[in-house]
Every structure is written in C-alpha cells, then in structure tokens.
Design a protein around this nucleic acid. Structure first.
Lengths: 108, 108
DNA sequence: GTCTTCGGTAAGCGGTAACTTACGGTAAGT
DNA sequence: ACTTACCGTAAGTTACCGCTTACCGAAGAC
C-alpha cells in the first residue's frame, strides 16, 4: 500500500510543486526553495515526506543535497492508477452488457 | 488542475476505500457505509468530495442514491500520472547521456 | 582555526480536515 | 395521514498538517 503514501504526498499543492520541479532533473534544496513562496525548512519537510513515500531520492555532494525522482516510486503510482483504470473499464463493460444504459451515459 | 482535486480526494484512506468500493459498480450510501468503520454521514461527506473532484457520479432511484465512478475523472488522473511518467523518463535519458551515472543507479 | 554556506531538526502556532451527534427532508409503504 | 427507510446538512470537537522562527551540525573557503 505504498501508493497510499504517494497519493498523500502528492495531495498537497506545495509538495506537488516541489515534486514537479524535479521532472527536469536533480536540484538542491536551496534551488527548489528559491522558486517557491515558502521557507527553506518547509521545503526540507516536504522533501522528507516525498522521500518516505519513495518518490524521490537524495544524493549528497559537498554540503549540498541533490534530490531527484525515483523510477520505482513513479512506477508504483502509475501501476495503481492504471490497474484501477483497467478494472473500472471491465466493470463498466459488464454493466453495459446488463443493460444499465443510465450509467453508460456519463457515469461509469 | 483538476487532477489536484483528484489527488487530494484520494489521499485520505477512508475516502480511498469508498472510491475503491465503486470499482465493482454502483452502490448506495448505506451499502458503502456498512462496509466501513465510520458513520453514514461521514461517508456522505466523502462522497461529496469525490463528486466535486469529478471522480464519481450520482444516480437517484427512489429515496436511494447510487454512486459510481466517472470515466472522465479517472482519465484525467491517469493522463496526469502518465504524462509525468513520460517526462520523467525523457529527463532520465538526457541525464544518462550526459554521463550522470550516479543518478542512473537507483535515482532517476 | 575561523567563517560562511547549506540544510536538517525542534518547538510552537494557526488552520483545516475528518469525525461525531442531531436534525430536516424526501420518497415509499401501510 | 402516519410511519419508516434513506440520505444530505449543520454544528461542534479533536487531531493532524503545513508553516515559521530558532537552533545546530557538517563541509568547503579563506
């Protein structure tokens, strides 16, 4: 149920901004914070949550710490959503075959 | 940024349970609540959040209300995660070509 | 060694989210 | 009409979450 932690981590808008900053590649804490309207300690706390969720990794060089996305964490979240999607589609098909056209209009 | 609402909605474990109950098809509020350790009004509040996030839809029959998943809401969330996945993979490739093998090990 | 940069951690505060109980409203049954 | 079943909403409580300021350690620069 690690996807639960991932969803919780990405629920907060600020933390999602932190996360999305790392799409382009690794960044240091100061760099991340400079593009956000919150303090640097706040960013550190967000990074902690993202790391515990398995979404990001840390690499130390000198006094700086570069954070970057983790493939495994992303894959887990992706698999959850995709699996959900497939099951929902199958369930939708079964409902349609039973003639529940009311649900077929806009409701799955 | 509707995926933000979707992520927020799915962050809560109880609400995620409500959501996952609907994979198999439409259910009434009472049915949903009977499988959960919280009160029925709590379920109603969760359904409200999920509905505002565009993840579920409502269908009234008599005094009952059947809730079910919405394809559009699921698609939006899926597109967000998949788009993220693609961008991250591309960024990872660029980093690898620049010779940042340190990130290639376990960190994307 | 000293100073500065970088960043994690502790403590505390305010807001809000997730519950509960109580109430009201609608539709079906009798 | 009365009752019952089903459900949404309001009000209030509690716990957690995100933020800030203050502090401290670690690794270069001089």
């Amino acid at each position: 149920m690690a996807y639960g932690d991932a969803l919780t981590a990405l629920a907060d808008p600020t933390r999602r901004s932190v996360f999305e900053q790392l799409i382009g590649g690794a960044r240091s804490v100061g760099e991340i914070a400079s593009d956000l309207p919150v303090s640097r300690p706040a960013v550190s706390q967000h990074l902690r949550v993202l790391k515990e969720a398995g979404l990001i990794g840390e690499r130390r060089v000198g006094t700086r710490r570069y954070y970057s996305l983790r493939r495994d964490g992303l894959a887990e979240l992706r698999n959850y959503v995709d699996g959900f999607w497939d099951e929902a589609l199958a369930s939708f098909k079964r409902a349609a075959e039973r003639g529940e056209k009311d649900e077929a209009s806009d409701v799955l």
